[in-house]
Simulated assay, not measured.
Amino acid sequence: MTDATALPDWLTRIGVFDLETTGVDVSRDRIVTAHVGVLDAHGRQIAARSWIADPVIPVPDGAAAIHGFTTERVRREGRPAADVVREVTGSLRALLDQGMPVVAYNASYDFSLLFHECLRHGIAPLEDPSPVIDPLVIDKAVDRYRRGKRTLEIVAEHYAVPLDGAHEASADAIAAGRVAQELGRRFELPVSATELHTRQIGWARTQAESLTEYFIRIGRIDPDDSIDGAWPIRDGAESAG
């Protein structure tokens, strides 16, 4: 059991959210699996719901190799995509309406893809979800100069958070929530989830600007291009990185 004595009050009960998808383009790719849950102060999941969607379009082999859901499997086990999108959005809206922070690792990917799925199916989207907690953005801000990649697997290991079954929506969502709580124990974060949400908007923008400069310098993108730093909903389609 994780010690909760040093945990800020606003991290003692948090929502967690993750998607596995057909690809990394937030405007074109589709949901394959989803998970929304609630963690208590000890990182135990006390409420949860998972979904499998039939995205109608084929699941690319590369994506299936990561999360294990092939085209054949989603057509056999998945529910209509519109129903899944509506229910996932409704579950998140219910948590946010209660003022409960929702954790998502690389939140601008998951929330942006869900936003476009809503538009695709004629469902009212979460246009400005808040408060959202993104351990990726926070970790880059509070430990800026640490070398190495910042995938969920690597960051979870760095903060001694178990991650069994990476790239499975429930495992990733729970691990992200526990990483967020560990960040709250180790670093002095804002006094409220709302203030942290606002800070993350600026941090994400600054991080995107820095990454843009780096990618231009190494020739990965053209000098006229830029990384979308909007958070937690991106302004346009972009890779998850």
Rank of each mutant, 00 (worst) to 15 (best):
E238F: 13
P125K: 00
T212A: 13
E182V: 06
A237T: 07
D172G: 05
P125T: 01
E168Q: 15
G202Q: 11
L113W: 05
R75N: 12
V74L: 03
S192A: 00
G15V: 04
R28Q: 07
H121G: 05
G62H: 08
L19P: 03
P190H: 15
T89R: 09
L114G: 01
V85C: 08
K149M: 14
A204V: 08
A160G: 07
P190R: 05
Y214S: 15
L92A: 02
G236A: 12
E72A: 13
Y109W: 08
T2L: 13
G177K: 06
I31K: 11
L136K: 12
L211G: 12
T71E: 10
E182Y: 02
L211P: 14
D61W: 11
V56F: 06
I14T: 01
V32C: 04
Y105Q: 03
D25M: 10
I14N: 05
D225C: 11
W51I: 10
H116M: 02
R144E: 15
V59Y: 05
T194H: 03
L211H: 12
I201H: 11
I31F: 06
V85E: 10
R120Y: 06
T194Q: 06
M1E: 14
G43D: 05
A169V: 01
A53V: 09
D172P: 04
R76Y: 06
L96T: 02
V56K: 10
R205V: 14
Q45V: 10
S91H: 15
L163E: 05
F187P: 10
S130F: 10
T71S: 01
A124K: 07
S239P: 03
F187N: 13
Q45G: 00
D9Y: 01
I123P: 00
V155D: 06
G177Q: 04
A81K: 06
L39Q: 02
T12E: 04
N106K: 13
A230W: 08
H121S: 08
M1L: 13
H158Q: 13
A141R: 15
G229C: 07
V132N: 01
V103G: 03
I138D: 03
G177I: 09
